[in-house]
Amino acid sequence: MFKGGEGSDVTLHALGRKWRLHKLYLSQSPYFKSMFSENWREARENEISIEIVDPNITMAGLETALGSLYHDEVQLQPADVVSVVAAAALFQLDGLLTQCGEVMMSCVNVQTAIVFLEAATAYSLRPVQLRCQRWLETNLMTHVNDQPSVLRQVSPAVLSSLVASPALVVHQTEFSLYVVLKVWLFLRLCADWEGGGSAAVVAAHKFFQQRAAEEPLLDSEEAGALAAPFRALRHQHLVLHPLDFEVLHADNIIPPGWLAGLYRHQWLTLLRLDQGLVEPGWSRDVTEAQFDACALRCGRTLKDRQKVTWRVTAVCLDEQRSPRHTQSSGLTAVQLARGQEVRVLTLDEAATYPLLLLAKLSSNS
Rank of each mutant, 00 (worst) to 15 (best):
K18I: 10
K18V: 13
W19I: 10
L24F: 14
Y25I: 07
Y25D: 00
L26P: 06
Q28Y: 15
S29T: 08
S29R: 05
P30C: 11
F32I: 05
S34I: 00
M35K: 08
E42D: 15
E45A: 11
N46I: 00
E47L: 07
E47G: 05
I48P: 00
S49Q: 12
E51I: 09
A60P: 02
G61T: 08
L62Y: 01
H71P: 01
V74F: 01
Q75T: 14
P78S: 12
D80I: 10
V84D: 05
L97D: 00
C100L: 08
E102N: 11
V108K: 03
Q111I: 02
V115P: 02
V115E: 10
F116D: 00
A119F: 03
T121I: 07
Q129D: 02
R131T: 09
C132Q: 06
Q133D: 02
H143D: 13
V144Y: 04
Q153W: 04
V154H: 04
T173A: 08
S176I: 01
F186M: 08
L187A: 08
W193D: 07
E194G: 01
A203H: 09
Q209T: 14
Q209H: 07
G224M: 12
R234I: 10
L240E: 13
D244H: 15
F245G: 06
G261V: 11
L262E: 14
L262R: 05
Y263G: 15
R264N: 09
Q266G: 06
L270N: 07
L271C: 12
R284E: 15
E288I: 14
L296I: 03
R300G: 14
T301C: 06
Q306G: 14
W310R: 01
T326Y: 00
Q327L: 15
S328N: 08
S329L: 05
R338S: 10
Q340L: 04
V344M: 12
V344I: 11
L347G: 03
E349R: 03
A350S: 09
P354W: 09
S365I: 10
